[in-house]
């Protein structure tokens, strides 16, 4: 079993109004050193290893559903899942 962590973020060219609002709040809390905030999504998948290559399958899932590549970038990490 593999644990896959998928990170989806808005592309650099896309304005992130949520991130801007959070940065504004941080500034009002006197964290003036914050220069940018980008908000994204974190997805954690448990994937059973079969005949299909995990990297290939996850990339496919990202392209088809998990991210919209018109506005979002994604990256993922594959780890051994620790059995409970």
């Amino acid at each position: 079993m593999k644990k896959v962590k998928v990170y989806v973020t808005l592309r650099e060219s896309v304005l992130d109004p949520q991130g801007s609002a959070v940065m504004g709040a941080l500034h009002s809390m006197e964290y003036s050193e914050v220069k940018d905030v980008r908000i994204g999504k974190f997805l954690e998948l448990q994937i059973e290893e079969g005949t299909r290559d995990v990297d290939t399958v996850v990339k496919e899932m990202c392209e088809k559903l998990l991210a919209n590549t018109v506005i979002e970038d994604y990256r993922f990490e594959v780890e051994e899942a620790v059995s409970k």
Partner: peptide, 11 residues
């Protein structure tokens, strides 16, 4: 259709 719909600018 091309493009995408994002969160309203004023949230």
């Amino acid at each position: 259709l091309p493009g995408a719909l994002l969160r309203n600018k004023n949230l």
